[in-house]
Nucleic acid binder design. Sequence first.
DNA 1: GGCATTATTTAGCTATGCTAATAACGTTGG
DNA 2: CCAACGTTATTAGCATAGCTAAATAATGCC
Lengths: 143, 143
Amino acid sequence: MAVGAGAPEQVADRLHSAAVTLLRRLRREDAGLAIGPARTSTLAVLVFAGPKTMGELAAIEQVRPPTMSRIVAALEADLLALRESDPDDRRAQRVRATTLGRRVAYRDRERRVGVLTERLRAHSAEEIALLDRAAELIERLAR
Amino acid sequence: MAVGAGAPEQVADRLHSAAVTLLRRLRREDAGLAIGPARTSTLAVLVFAGPKTMGELAAIEQVRPPTMSRIVAALEADLLALRESDPDDRRAQRVRATTLGRRVAYRDRERRVGVLTERLRAHSAEEIALLDRAAELIERLAR
DNA sequence: GGCATTATTTAGCTATGCTAATAACGTTGG
DNA sequence: CCAACGTTATTAGCATAGCTAAATAATGCC
């Protein structure tokens, strides 16, 4: 084995590069999406993780509150989500996806991940299992 | 083993989610960067892959030519890159990083990947090796 | 009641993506 | 040879998405 092969620095670098390459590839499919990436991502949170307040959404999406205000306003204008004020704390706004929003989110997810699914099919069960374990590791690594 | 565990659809979904989570985590470090994400990425290409024409850069970064024109103009204004016309084809512009650009690219890369390196150190050699193989697989998968 | 804290929005700036139109150069068929 | 077409890049103008600073409004705590 070569000196330094598998060193954390190198693996970190490759992992970073791989994630960038993968998402860049998947982003090519986004051209046909009806809404932009920030709105798609926020809508996905609402659909797959349930209703959230503005502050929670901003934290999850790692943007500042004003940015999230505008994203949700746009989703609302497109009838994909709606705001209702929290009865317990009337400063807060609870945001949830509409039925239309759910439909759009499922379709967009399929469109993005579908490409990856197709490519995975060409690989062996062992490689797929390895990627599954890697995905879990990466998810924990990033928290 | 559960039915469907390790099915391509599920693994694709987890892989996608893991990549998003990872890059979102790393993006937190970008706040301190001197230049925006598009410029950072384009500068990295010039530094780590050598001089390129405008069209090549646009293809690599998956943006349209006008977008790349503006990114390179900004890099040039900050003295991080420079354009010189190709003697063979005077329509083409060859872009290369300056010495300052190289310094900035190395610093930014370290900043981004450094976080990941630190976290990897807390993991076993086996897990690191698994991630290394996964990175290679993902890279091939995305081409 | 008064005052700090918290949740969100408004206003306005910058960065990054796009399309359409234009300019300039290269290539090629008649 | 040169007119027509293709290629490379830029300019102009628009939409989306990020930010900070400041305003608004509700809570909570003496």
